[in-house]
């Protein structure tokens, strides 16, 4: 098994997904199967190969520096689960 229970818990923590105790074994097995399967890439020697940098050869798009002065606060707060005045609100963070 490529991915043991501790690894599963570690990546779930990184991804901020809560995994219940009774699910850990299942997840570990599924993830291991997938990782085992993608291991077949090791058959390819890529020592001299550069990773793909551009999918399609097109020039990059840039924007100018002119600010748009529109106030979008209504738009961005519209769907917020919790807000007060013009703020998003989350459970207290301790630094």
């Amino acid at each position: 098994m490529k991915i043991d229970k501790n690894t599963t818990l570690k990546i779930a923590r990184l991804a901020r997904i809560k995994i219940n105790n009774n699910e850990i074994a299942d997840y570990s097995k599924q993830l291991s199967n997938i990782i085992d399967w993608v291991q077949q890439l090791n058959e390819v020697n890529t020592d001299q190969i550069e990773p793909l940098k551009k999918i399609v050869e097109i020039p990059a798009t840039f924007k100018g520096d002119e600010p748009e002065l529109k106030d979008y606060s209504q738009d961005i707060l519209e769907n917020a689960p919790e807000k007060i005045e013009n703020y998003f609100v989350v459970p207290k963070v301790v630094e």
Binding site: R13, A15, R16, I17, K18, I76, E78, N79, A80, P81, E82, F88, V90, P91, K92, V93, V94
Partner: peptide
């Protein structure tokens, strides 16, 4: 935080993230 479903778990920011997701 900004939109969509949020779990009622409010113990901490991380707990909220994890259960929500």
């Amino acid at each position: 935080v900004k939109y969509g479903f949020r779990s009622k778990i409010n113990d901490s920011l991380d707990a909220m993230y994890e259960v929500t997701r």
